[in-house]
């Protein structure tokens, strides 16, 4: 059941981005209980994975924006997520991303999704800047941040108790 009204859907050449719904739970659980989730605090058991999934949905309900779940156009199966993210305890708003399975990597899909999600944050939410908090060992994620034109910001704090690199996205207006 998903009837939170008025939530946006974004489309790119290959992808649709939308609010997560109950039908996304199994794809998300598979991701968060796998070794792929090691870079974002996992792998987790199914109960904790559900809290994480509920957090992603509840963030939308409470803040009015959140992680878009990414589906290939013509399919409704989520392959990843990206979007504006500002949970309690974050020093400032973040642009986040995760691809759920390795089979979707190396095709520019995460870039395509994160770019349109970032545009949404800047143009529709009015964000002036955003950071991405990245595990220093997550080389793929670092490469994506750099491809998006984000720059390391060594002055910016990480969430308390988290060891991370901070990449900063300049707003669309000021980006060269």
């Amino acid at each position: 059941m998903i009837t939170v009204s008025g939530t946006p859907a974004l489309t790119t050449e290959r992808l649709t981005l939308r609010m997560p719904a109950s039908r996304d739970w199994e794809a998300y659980a598979e991701f968060l209980t796998s070794e792929r989730a090691a870079m974002i605090g996992g792998p987790l058991g199914r109960d904790k994975a559900w809290r994480s999934f509920g957090h992603a949905v509840g963030h939308w309900v409470l803040r009015g924006y959140g992680m878009f779940f990414v589906t290939p156009r013509g399919s409704d199966t989520a392959i990843g997520m990206t979007g504006p993210w500002f949970p309690e305890g974050w020093p400032e708003p973040e642009l986040g991303w995760s691809m759920f399975g390795g089979e979707h990597e190396g095709k520019g899909l995460a870039f395509e999704a994160a770019e349109v999600a970032r545009r949404y944050a800047f143009q529709k939410l009015g964000w002036k800047t955003a950071v991405s908090y990245i595990d220093p060992a997550n080389l793929r994620s670092i490469a994506l941040a750099e491809r998006l034109g984000a720059l390391p910001d060594p002055e910016a704090p990480c969430p308390e108790g988290v060891s991370c690199l901070v990449y900063r996205h300049a707003s669309v207006e000021v980006r060269p």
């Binding site: 998903i2 109950s22 809290r51 994480s52 999934f53 509840g58 309900v61 305890g89």
Partner: peptide
């Protein structure tokens, strides 16, 4: 638990309206 952990639990509880009705 601290605010950050409390937020995660509470957000997931509120999310049930969207997920389960």
């Amino acid at each position: 638990i601290d605010r950050r952990a409390a937020w995660r639990i509470w957000a997931s509880e509120v999310a049930q309206w969207s997920l389960m009705g």
